[in-house]
Amino acid sequence: MYRKFTVLMAAISAAVILFGCSSGKKELYIYNWSDYINEDLVKRFEEENNCKIILDYFDSNETMYAKLQAGATGYDIVFPSGYMVNMMAQQGLLLKLDQSKIPNLKNLDEKYIPFSMDENQEYSVPYMISNTGIGYLASKAGDDFDPSWNIFADPRYKGRMTMLNDMREAIGAALKYLGYSMNTIKSDELEAAKKILIGWKRNLAKFEADQYKNGLVSEEFYFSQGYSGDVYQVMEENEDINYAIPKEGTTLSSDNMVILKGSKNTDLAYAFINFLLDGKVAAENIEYVYYLAPNKEAYQYLSDEIKNEPAILMPDEILNKCEVLKDLGENNELYSKIWDEVKAAK
């Protein structure tokens, strides 16, 4: 019985190897966040270029980084967030981009370039811009809801609100409310933000970075500081859920496309990046993932529904108040200390 099984397995693996090679198509290995690309576009690219794309997924920058550090090879394109691009470039994992092979770089929207950590696209090309805002239940907020971080000070919603369990985001919201930079290292500004945040904390159900979206769906929480993608994702499950960007400004972050040094099919990788930067393609991608691809040629093809969504295509006056969270290196400890004090406060 056991031997039969072994023989069968050997036969199957032989078949896989044989047929796997027989197609003879070029292959492109992509390592991406899940649900982060319109798969129709992937199919279209495969047909146009007579190649095969293999998609693999990660759930956090750290997982992806650990896997690559541990020696995983074979991936061509990866989609890391800004700070991770810097780290990967420093570690020598990334290919320095030959910009002549990506003519569609001209479509990038200059407004959003400062939010990328690699402003000259030396190693990376911005893929999608996401932001942090407030997911809320419209029925509880009322018609006169004016999106502000100070909603967390409202005692009417005590015990039914959450903020992100992420020190940079939570302290950042308080800093923004006070009109300071989210990357400040001035101790008086951080102290002031700490006081505000401790006041907000007394009204919170909890600091929560993950389950808040389910909490919104089940109406456990009325207001949650959250990531745009998360909130848009659960809107289908409860129509009462809305999303707003606070008027004081917020965090933007970009995910980027990079080519790994070990890539075997660089030309195909360049072609794929160029393909995603095409205006029409980018528009289709935005419609699918509900994030903003910073592509000025794409906006004209967007449906009205997306065009009128201020949390995707932000008005300039809010955009100007937004920032990207920078890695503060040693100064991270300033934030850890404030965060410890906020968490321990009564």
Partner: peptide, 22 residues
């Protein structure tokens, strides 16, 4: 099930390792 003030030692260790990267 804990609130914003419900942290125990285990949560602090997780924070040190995962978010503070220390």
């Amino acid at each position: 099930v804990g609130g914003p003030g419900g942290e125990m030692l285990g949560n602090k260790i997780a924070q040190r390792v995962f978010t503070d990267r220390n």
